[in-house]
Write a protein that binds this DNA or RNA. Structure first.
Lengths: 231, 231
DNA sequence: GGAATATGACTGACTGGTCAGTCATGGTCA
DNA sequence: TGACCATGACTGACCAGTCAGTCATATTCC
């Protein structure tokens, strides 16, 4: 349909993450190339839409607000997205894919399993907890039931892969004797549960009772791996 | 609507002749008393509103739909609630308070700490996971940021109490030597995290990959208490 | 008891405002 | 110049909240 961006084949790698916070407002960099400008606008729209959807949820978000924040006219949004709904769905994909790409590019498996998981947890802390990506997770939990395609996508691309990766690590840990609880491999959810709780906690309750997510995850790993290592 | 021939003034003699309850509404009980009827309607509105809010979220829920589902006119809702927003806030209170009341009525502290926690987990499984109350938790996660008063209430009434109760149990477990990881008392969140994940999982992913919450919680307790007990 | 009257719960058509999506017009780049 | 973009005023659907009117029930009075 109005799906056009793919054909112009511009490296969407340009953005999707959280690069320039500057809206295309002041055209300091005219970006003479037309396709480039279009890409910038698209990126600005994605950026603005993320913020608005996270702040208000799908239904309460106004396209006028997204347009204003992105520094474009409302009609421009419809040059890039079919409608509000497909915009939301596409948005989730655009933002999540690079994150998955980065997180699944695991570091070379050196050291103990605990070290591997600690590295992973550390990345997760930096990249997700307390960031806008964490809010995105909350948004998916919130809107998932009304957007089955989003929930499906999220399950397929993030959850199932994450679970599989964690299971592999757990099994390695069991094989190496680092982890005693063999049944843990059946429920990798247990391994990631505190991290997810931390994400949600930061969104909802940080104001009431700040949570030291890093310390909590350390304690959780102590629980799984047994005796504390001196950090 | 069940209501139809208002205009054609059917003779009230019909009514006078028979004392029988007017079957105007569906299979409703007569509810002779006025105050009782009002209470019933209020309850019906709360019930309907819960379903609608859970299914659609706050912003996307139409009061017309709530009214239709509750079998009342829209105006009636405004006899019981100030507006949509305060209705939502009150709703959360109405539904949560009795749950908290029940769950905090702890059973007599007999047996091991593990048994206490297992009882608690078992109740939680029955009463929350996979039920509408579980969906309510998801709803609060979803709408919390936009309803600080709801998030505050939920933190005060549910989260802080729950955390405190869990901490007490953990400390008891440590004192009795059932729990080795002493730092766990600093993060009772770790104890409840898998239960919360189970709630969310059932809402979002049960379709893709059903989760045996009970078994998962058992494994988690094995992790915390050490060796398996024969169940 | 029961007729007459008062009450207020309930109704639903209506209003005013909001917002997704459109499109005629005007600007820009190749 | 002409193809392509971008714009933002506009439209129509939709919906929260209102209120004048209805009528079942309660109260009063004989």
């Amino acid at each position: 349909m109005t799906k056009k961006p793919t054909k112009t084949a511009l490296p969407s790698a340009t953005r999707a993450g959280a690069k320039d916070p500057i809206p295309a407002r002041s055209e300091e960099a005219p970006a003479s190339n037309r396709a480039t400008r279009a890409a910038e606008r698209r990126a600005a729209i994605v950026e603005a839409a993320m913020d608005e959807f996270i702040a208000r949820g799908f239904a309460a978000t106004r396209l006028d607000d997204i347009a204003k924040r992105a520094g474009v006219a409302k009609g421009t949004i419809y040059l890039h997205f079919k409608d509000k709904e497909s915009m939301f769905e596409e948005l989730v994909r655009i933002v999540i894919v690079p994150v998955v790409a980065r997180l699944t590019t695991l570091p070379p498996p050196t050291g103990t399993v605990r070290e591997l998981i600690e590295t992973f947890a550390s990345n997760f802390l930096k990249e997700v907890i307390g960031t806008r990506r964490g809010d995105l997770v909350r948004l998916i939990v919130a809107e998932g039931p009304r957007f089955p395609s989003v929930a499906d996508f999220y399950y397929r691309e993030v959850v199932s892969r994450g679970i599989a990766a964690m299971r592999a690590l757990i099994e390695l840990g069991i094989a190496r004797g680092e982890i005693r609880e063999k049944d843990l491999a059946r429920y990798p959810q247990i391994l990631v549960a505190p991290a997810m709780i931390a994400v949600i906690w930061q969104s909802l309750f940080a104001r009431h009772a700040p949570l030291d997510a890093q310390d909590m995850l350390r304690v959780h790993l102590d629980l799984i791996f047994g005796e504390r290592r001196t950090t």
